[in-house]
Design a protein around this nucleic acid. Structure first.
Lengths: 147, 147
DNA sequence: GGTCTTAATGCAAGTCCTCGCACTAAGATC
DNA sequence: GATCTTAGTGCGAGGACTTGCATTAAGACC
């Protein structure tokens, strides 16, 4: 059983004037191995086990390249580190609590009303999976309300 | 005419066990002088004209302190730099276009439907002024649709 | 398989912060 | 106004990227 779509990816890359390098393949494989969100640093660490000389900047550039190809996407959860994941996973929004730091996922469908308003009134097609919505979660609100 | 509420701020600070330092005052004044969004770096640069030895970390810490006091807030526009502004300005959401980088403001009221859904279904009180919504603006959508 | 073009890599330096720590100075108390 | 506690400062180092540049190596063409 071949690595999922490895050949196709190579073809797709070449069709776009890009190349399939060992580093690129390793980034792609690392991304496929971790099905949930991961960080560039985590990807780099994984790769370094087999290919120690990889440079962090190469990882960043490859994640971007894969995103351009539609194979990866990134999300900003907590203002600081960027989270990466495979593009074929179901997209969802994120709610992160500024008090406890907790994070919950929301189906993008729940954000449809917002999407509709923004499109209708501003012609703006928002990518609601891209940035987390920051606020205060139910349990922290309960505490601060004086429980 | 005294600087707006300078004395009150000092009192408020002391009431919270905090102090009014020259640096703090300068950060506050810089924030008051620029009524729109600004960056920590811009604030630092402004202060340095009159007080060259100020350290960037002091500016960051003071912006945070003023935020804690409810005098400042920050917004993440384009994933990279943090924008600061006075808390007394009208709050609004931001739509930033990932193609042209353009930014438009939306009254928070426009985001009410989203707020309602998140509260009802997730008990989550989102701060919709905190993070910009990333997406594609009307004019860029028109171009890529083939105009 | 050799040549050649240029995308991609690795390295170093830079940006925007954040954090730990020793020192300084607000401001409360005498 | 001297003393004392501790919040706040400056400095240095570190983290998460980003960027410019010389070098390397995909992969297209012979």
């Amino acid at each position: 059983m071949p690595e999922s779509g490895d050949v196709d990816v190579g073809r797709e890359l070449r069709a776009r004037g890009k190349r399939m390098t060992v580093q690129r393949r390793l980034v792609l494989e690392a991304l496929e191995r971790t099905s949930h969100h991961t960080t560039a640093d985590e990807v780099a660490r994984q790769i370094r086990e087999r290919y120690p000389q990889i440079d962090p900047s190469t990882v960043y550039r490859n994640l971007e390249a894969l995103e351009e190809l539609g194979l990866a996407t990134h999300t900003h959860l907590n203002d600081r580190v960027t989270r990466w994941h495979r593009a074929d996973l179901e997209r969802h929004g994120h709610l992160v609590c500024r008090v406890c730091g907790g994070e919950q996922e929301v189906p993008l469908r729940a954000l449809d009303p917002l999407d509709a308003v923004l499109r209708a009134e501003h012609g703006f097609a928002a990518d609601l999976a891209h940035s987390a919505l920051v606020g205060i979660c139910a349990s922290c609100a309960r505490v601060s309300a004086g429980g």
